[in-house]
């Protein structure tokens, strides 16, 4: 039984590090900020989750703490990327588009600026 857990853990670690690499490759290759955000958030979230879960599988006593890190990453990572995306838009960073499709533009203009809201 322990042997199988170990093999699952090793598989998860390799899979996770591969996705971490793909996430960073996305950060490197994508043409603009928003697409980098996409690649960076998704791939690195799954990569880190699966790698840390793999560590938990190899050392079963560490499972609880690695599960905490996994849950934390799953909750915190989309939050931080959402905050970054909105702040970049408010900071007048226009998304790169092949054909103009920007439903947020009209809203961002009428919204009160943050400094007025505070």
């Amino acid at each position: 039984m322990m042997e199988y857990l170990k093999y699952i853990g090793q598989g998860l670690i390799v899979f996770g590090s591969l996705f971490l690499f793909l996430g960073a490759l996305g950060i490197f290759r994508m043409p603009d900020f928003y697409n980098r955000l996409q690649a960076g958030t998704k791939a690195s979230t799954l990569g880190a989750m699966s790698l840390i879960l793999g560590v938990g599988f190899i050392q079963p006593e560490w499972m609880i703490k690695s599960l905490i890190i996994v849950v934390f990453i799953a909750v915190a990572n989309p939050l931080s990327s959402h905050a970054l995306g909105r702040s970049a838009y408010k900071n007048n960073l226009k998304p790169f588009m092949k054909k103009k499709m920007d439903a947020y533009e009209k809203v961002a203009e009428i919204l009160p600026k943050e400094e007025d809201r505070l």
């Binding site: 490759l25 998304p95 588009m97 092949k98 054909k99 439903a103």
Partner: peptide, 12 residues
């Protein structure tokens, strides 16, 4: 990410 031509068509 891997495909060389970057098949994206972004928008909001």
């Amino acid at each position: 990410v891997i495909s060389p031509s970057l098949p994206i068509n972004p928008g909001i």
